[in-house]
Design a protein around this nucleic acid. Structure first.
Lengths: 200, 200, 200, 200
DNA sequence: AATGAATGAGGCTTCATTCAT
DNA sequence: TATGAATGAAGCCTCATTCAT
């Protein structure tokens, strides 16, 4: 019998183990037996801390949502847009990478479950997009950004960053081609601000 | 008993039914009973046409791969880069939308299955990226595109387009916010070529 | 569609195919699909000629029973017991070998099915034993055989011969050790009549 | 829910139940549902103790093979061959009867499965025959047994004993004709050593 | 609170049999 | 009469959940 620790501690251990297993296999293919093994507890113990296997998923999803996914888009002290953008993107990228396993689980399940889909859109996508859009509009008013549709423009930026996260964190693409984060950030910012058009 | 049709016809019916169910529920949560119901055949009938439930998935994946996912990037008759880009993107977007249910299934399974992950990367991502990269390099040589890293730049463009497909086709985001395809294309092209920077 | 032949002919073909498959795999593990393939007909055709798969088994069993399993034990013209025995055994051995596949099926199923067990005992074992016992008693009366229990003595002889049939025909033992029929017959007769005791 | 006992205990219960069902119906016709019923456990419980239904069979077969099927053929203190033979046969007969249900299962499956056939021949037939042959040769050298082919002679003896085991244990023949074991042994020994030939 | 054996509903798959062609 | 696609009952096995210890 495993050494008694606080219930909250044990709960956290199980939840993290579930997260690791779900991230490896997906929710349906993960068995409570494997989660128990990964957590180093008996199968029954899981159910002392969580009502159902579903509850593990929901709790994991909730733990993504405690993260400050809303970036701090603010123009402090008249810094150039480029610097602000770089700070935010670097920060977002780090945050995504840290939470990649959980985000992957959330995203993967959101593809097929209405309830999670709604939460994902509301609490991940829209939350992040709305703050960015507000910033974008302000900057447009100020003339530092062109008057393109802010909702679309913000999503374009999210897509540019997102694809690299999906590639390396969700699809394990590093095995094929590994990108350097700083180079990626530089390029994204450069393209996003100035485009790829040459003088040709 | 359902009227006998050609084996190929029945096979196609079952495969399409499976595609619909998988797209709705994901592979694991779909039962062969439901696929049979959707196809209007007895459960056993599925197995006269497909060895296993897995085989349905693999066949569906294969049917994605018969699509010409590699875009035709070519500079015919000195058309401006903007027009070429618009043609390709419009064409890609249409293709993705048509094949969205299958792509979603493929992508969702690729998140957790090594074999499908490899195929997805090889046969969807890299196939599409490689052609675009070649075009990008040529245009750079010609001076019509700036000398940014082509692999990153191409992925940025894929991310910009991809996020809208994921939003509307994978996550059902239209319910929340519907984007007009042409507006999206215009904005993407405008940003990608010239950036969002104003004169502020 | 297979060339039309007489129904009786087609029936015979199917029955023989079933016999071959049953002998290879046993009744339960044989599928009507494989029998059809072996017979070169469509699966449905089997059921035009036989009500059920069981009927194939029953018919095969019946075909064993049309064989003259009862040996002709008769003392013609005062031939020595040794010669009679040799004739009968050689004849039995040949008969068993010819009908080995069917006997194997019959025997194997008799191990687990009451109905076939009864028929096997009645129509194979007892039929063969009874004739032999009668002969044995006659010879005992005549003094050419010792007064041992005829039922047991006859079964001893059956066991001696039977074990070699089981070895080579039922268990494929020839792969390990192949016995020459005439040597076996010589030895059986020699032992059965005179025993193995030396003068040591 | 059935009271929890040690895993080994429950395993044994299930294995024995499986043995009873297999002996009654044969392997293929036995269902895991019936085995569970016979063992008084839920069907799923079987699979906590055995990987597959096949594993039950293999384990049962293995349990036959732990038995000392090789008889101890030894000439202790110049006892007459007759006594040695009687000891061995009586002992073998008892052993076969005790293990008859398992032997029947093993034998029945060996008729149709190459893997079991090989094990049956190697580990039951040859193991028993080889020891007997060695003894036979020694006695021949000593002059107490005649110079007949020992491999054939030993199988003759096995057949004589075997047919009575098959009759009563495999085919339920006692219902028709019941033999007294001692009478059978006496007769077998008498015939095997001295033959049935009278002075007629 | 922890354990892990037991449960049984439900999934995938097989295959004898039916029946429209 | 022959075909072979379709059927669906039934079998094996999985696994989330329960509960006696």
């Amino acid at each position: 019998m495993k050494r008694s620790v606080s219930a909250a501690e044990r709960r956290r251990e199980i939840l993290q183990a579930a997260g690791r297993v779900f991230a490896r296999k997906g929710f349906e293919r993960s068995t409570t037996a494997e989660i128990a093994r990964e957590a180093g507890v008996a199968e029954g113990t899981i159910f002392r801390h969580f009502e159902t296997k579903q509850a593990l998923l929901i709790d994991l999803v909730a733990s993504v949502l405690t993260e400050p996914l809303t970036a701090v888009w603010k123009r402090s002290e008249n810094r150039p847009v480029e610097e602000i953008l770089r700070d935010v993107l670097r920060n977002r990228l780090a945050l995504f990478r840290e939470n990649a396993p959980l985000l992957k689980i959330f995203f993967a399940e959101a593809l097929f479950r209405e309830d999670l889909r709604d939460r994902f859109i509301d609490e991940v996508v829209l939350r992040a997009a709305t703050a960015a859009e507000a910033f974008f509009r302000e900057e447009q008013a100020r003339g530092s950004l062109r008057p393109v549709n802010p909702q679309i423009a913000v999503r374009c930026l999210m897509g540019m960053l997102g694809i690299f996260v999906v590639w390396s964190e969700f699809l394990g693409g590093d095995k094929y081609l590994r990108f350097d984060d700083e180079a990626v950030l530089d390029t994204i910012i450069s393209i996003y601000l100035d485009g790829v058009r040459g003088r040709g």
